[in-house]
Design a protein around this nucleic acid. Sequence first.
DNA 1: ACCTGAACACCGTTCAAGT
DNA 2: ACCTGAACACCGTTCAAGT
Lengths: 202, 202
Amino acid sequence: MDARDARPDRHGSDRNSRDGIVDVALQLLEQTGLPDLSMRRLAGALGVQPSALYWHFENKQSLLAAVADRIVGSAAPVPRGGDRDAEASAVAGALRDALLAHRDGAEVVLSTQALGLGSDAALDRLAQALSETDAAGEDARSAATVLLQFILGHASLVQQRIQAARFGAYPAGEAEVAESTAADFARGIRMLLAGLGAPLPR
Amino acid sequence: MDARDARPDRHGSDRNSRDGIVDVALQLLEQTGLPDLSMRRLAGALGVQPSALYWHFENKQSLLAAVADRIVGSAAPVPRGGDRDAEASAVAGALRDALLAHRDGAEVVLSTQALGLGSDAALDRLAQALSETDAAGEDARSAATVLLQFILGHASLVQQRIQAARFGAYPAGEAEVAESTAADFARGIRMLLAGLGAPLPR
DNA sequence: ACCTGAACACCGTTCAAGT
DNA sequence: ACCTGAACACCGTTCAAGT
């Protein structure tokens, strides 16, 4: 009947640490979604006062940046070498999957990227894959930036839409949305990679 | 000294209407940004109780959808005909400019699109421009979807980053960010349009 | 070093009641 | 038809004080 009894298991990880807090934040994100992931609720889940969080993180934004890094870090590894575009396309797919696998993951990562917080892991992986492509005069890093902007825009839109479909606020079934947007994504990545190798216009 | 004296001029437009409310919401968005555009502040600017807004709009989300439609509607017209890709690229640029011209415009439009609220004006304009392209087996509407996802992802990221740069939260000058991201955008659109005409891989 | 307690200045939304 | 008044259940953040 104590308040501390109600907090979730932390399986050995120290709660008095950034990592431990991010663990719980990620679980809470999964359960309640970004709009309900408040500092107050997170504190409650940790069995602590809201103000205690501000000893570990400067503000909510930087806590979310740590969450974003976890999400990006969860993207599956992709075997190196082999086909030129196949690797880049696999990395893009792995990133998309990681974003969509965590509730509101795309939005968290998009805003973190925008603010220049969090790591550059996503950009780095894309740039590395693209460096195997012979990109006619274009450097891998700026092409990776373009890919990442498409991935984040696509995934944010898809994810919010799936969420809306789930509780009837969008006029289509969840499975239908998932299917048609997967096709959009494949086409977008294909267009971008094809365009990368194509000659400049005019 | 009356509270009503403090509310902004409405130059003849009726405040007791959806249009009048959206006028003021758009002004308020410009002045304060999306995080501070609350129903309560909007009501204050209109000289009305917060609850009064709920007679005109079901909720905040649908009010924002009306704001989003205004922003998209403000995109400059583009002359029809002429070069195949030039028109699509001009429409994309006009949409980008409209999003960036209104504070937090990209985010407002992105979430509205995601929820299936608001009009399809942006998608329609892109699809129409693309229909002049001989897109090898791909239909204009799904290519337009891809373009729009890139535009929204790009613009959301750019806009948040410019905002951050403006008050020192991003480690680069505002002009520098504007310049480099404009180049990203041009490259992205060029890649997508080139990829649209390219043959399927394998 | 890490957290509590209390406060400050806010939110979106509902609903009976007024005019 | 349009709005008020009051309430409900919340926010992020700061800061002195405790251990």
